[in-house]
Design a protein around this nucleic acid. Structure first.
Length: 558
RNA sequence: GGGCCCGUGGCUUAGCUAGGAUAAAGCACCGGCCUUCUAAGCCGGGGAUCGCGGGUUCGAAUCCCGCCGGGUCCGCCA
């Protein structure tokens, strides 16, 4: 609803500024008003008048009657706008009718995220990728896009060849989760290769045979990749993350799509021969990009070109969630795709997660697996539930612990800007009390609790109510906060900054808690009770929606 | 060496793209609030030369230049 308020402010401000020349309306969010404009400052310069005077003049030229705006005031040089009663009313009404996207059918977006190598379990670094990607997918869906999520499976890299080679020498441990069993073999194989360089040839032969499509080799690869992915999918499921499609790199080599890309680049790009290898010179990038190895096999970047060309034909926009290490690659990708007349993907690049002891590495066995973290955080959450809610039964306790644990984990990973490097601290990650997610979940549970008690008393929440009775600051502020949900979704859908959702969720919960503290609902007189119950219901709906966007479950009690 | 990113109370961060009103939160610390809808909550308090130095501007955490500290990339790896 806030989007519509802002649109109206823009409209009337433009009218009031008809006699002025201005570049921008300079509409800003402000703590002194529901929305404000600072345009008087810049007009002051060109018109050589005091900003205060100009602000007053503009306010005098605003239309007297508006729908969503109650009034506007010039406070010194600032022009402050305030929402109307009708705005508050419409906000609650819209929420009760269901939070539908303002715009629909905005086109198809394919978002690629996670895409961890199939050589072991997901670790905490992959988690950041997966959670950012998953939340963006949820935001874009709500913003009215048709979204498909893809996991790009690297089955052609040297890493996988090493794992396949290792699997030929030792079996996967049967008593371990599949992806962990693959990691054990992969780590052991790496160690062996370091000690015995004569085995390296065997690995390279596997790579050549796989690309050539040798049946027996393909089957060996498939076993390793599928084994690992089975485990990875289990982990993702626990985190409430689902991919619509798993796409194997190898398919693009065997279908001839990679060769087609190489041939086309030879015609359209600045390609030169270095021995038998092919190098592509890209504009603005000093280093040439190798598009074909001397031995004729393909490289990651070339396969990625074929993958993106394929994707581009299936959607209107492509979004790739990448770690910071892929930044140069993404620039090369964009430039090479331009040569092929393929639209560029949009990149969401996040800085790394490292351990206090240094960077993460599956090969060196230096990582914390997502499974281990999930396990421990759910245990911690369970202890917390036991401590606080001993009255709950044996089914509910672990259920709530799972919601709280996973919620805390997801919230933690998304709350900081993707630009920020994270040094992972296990103790800190497990400190449930400090987390943002339980705070938001708790507010939701409180709202549900009031509604349950009301239902038990036979008070219906869809009773007709008089909005004019909601006059307390905490009530008005809460409604305004609720109105900003659509504004937030629209904003994040365009700037792709998912941490803003986490911030909003926390603030919304805070406003609800204040309302809860200052405005008794069930013990209020009948008319106030009806109006406040409607507000509680709206708060519950938005809290549950914002949690859903974060991929966090909203418990009805905790 | 070059490119990109980060540097905000003791700790973790928001704000920076489009410069504006006393720099905003959480954690930690100190002090209050459970006979009223869940205290995973609420209220109050102390604590910041926004890395450093210049510049632009009526106005800079925000824009520009330089420096310092951290991260990351610069593979016929992925």
């Amino acid at each position: 609803m806030f989007l519509e308020f802002k649109a109206e402010v823009e409209k009337v401000l433009k009218q009031a500024l008809a006699s002025y020349e201005y570049k921008d309306l300079e509409i800003v969010e402000s703590e002194h008003a529901d929305i404000a404009s600072t345009v008087a400052f810049s007009l002051a310069r060109s018109y050589k008048r005091a900003p205060k005077e100009i602000a007053e003049d503009i306010v005098n030229h605003l239309p007297a009657e508006n729908t969503l705006i109650s009034h506007a005031v010039a406070t010194g040089p600032y022009i402050n706008f305030y929402v109307s009663e009708f705005f508050l009313h419409k906000t609650l009404q819209q929420i009760r009718e269901g939070l539908e996207p303002v715009e629909k059918n905005r086109g198809k977006i394919i978002i690629e995220h996670t895409s961890a190598n199939a050589d072991g379990p997901l670790h905490i670094g992959h988690l950041r990728n997966a959670i950012i990607g998953d939340i963006l997918a949820r935001v874009l869906k709500r913003a009215g896009f048709d979204v498909e999520t893809q996991y790009y499976v690297n089955d052609l890299g040297r890493q996988i060849a090493v794992a396949v080679w290792g699997a030929g020498r030792m079996a996967f441990a049967a008593d371990k989760k599949a992806d962990h069993a693959v990691a054990d073999v992969y780590i052991a194989a790496n160690r062996e290769l370091e000690e015995h360089s004569e085995y390296v040839n065997a690995v390279e032969e596997l790579m050549r045979k796989y690309e050539a499509g040798d049946d027996a080799t393909v089957r060996r690869y498939e076993t390793v990749v599928n084994t690992c992915l089975t485990g990875v999918k289990e982990t993702l499921k626990r985190l409430n993350i689902k991919h619509d499609l798993f796409v194997l790199e190898g398919e693009f080599v065997r279908s001839g799509a990679v060769d087609a890309v190489v041939n086309e680049l030879m015609q359209k790009g600045d390609v030169k021969l270095d021995g038998t290898a092919l190098l592509l010179q890209l504009e603005g990038i000093e280093k040439e990009l190798v598009i074909k190895r001397s031995d004729g096999t393909s490289l990651y970047t070339t396969r990625d070109l074929a993958y993106h060309r394929w994707k581009s034909n299936r959607c209107d926009r492509m979004i790739d969630v990448f770690g910071k290490d892929h930044e140069l690659v993404s620039q090369q990708l964009t430039k090479a795709l331009a040569l092929l007349s393929v639209k560029s993907p949009e990149y969401v690049i996040f800085a790394f997660v490292s351990l206090p002891s240094g960077s993460l590495s599956t090969r060196a066995g230096r990582y914390i697996s997502a499974d281990e973290l999930i396990e421990k955080i759910e245990e911690r959450a369970y202890e917390e539930v036991e401590k606080r809610r001993d009255d709950l039964d044996a089914v509910k306790k672990p259920e709530i612990a799972r919601m709280v644990g996973i919620g805390a984990l997801r919230y933690d990973m998304v709350k900081v800007s993707p630009d920020k490097h994270i040094v992972f601290d296990f103790d800190d990650a497990l400190d449930i009390e400090k987390k943002g997610a339980p705070f938001v979940q708790y507010s939701h549970a409180r709202a549900c609790s009031i509604l349950r008690a009301a239902a038990a008393k036979g008070v219906l929440t869809d009773d007709v109510y008089d909005l004019a009775l909601l006059r307390e600051d905490s009530e008005l502020e809460l409604i305004k906060m609720l109105s900003k949900f659509d504004y937030l979704i629209a904003g994040v859908a365009s700037d792709l900054k998912p941490h803003r959702i986490a911030k909003y969720a926390r603030e919304l919960a805070e406003y609800f808690n204040l309302f809860y503290r200052y405005c008794p609902v069930l013990n209020a007189d009948e008319e106030h009770r009806k109006a406040r119950l409607a507000l509680v219901d709206c708060a519950r709906v938005v809290l549950s929606n914002v949690l859903d966007v974060l991929g966090i479950k909203a418990p009805e009690e905790m």
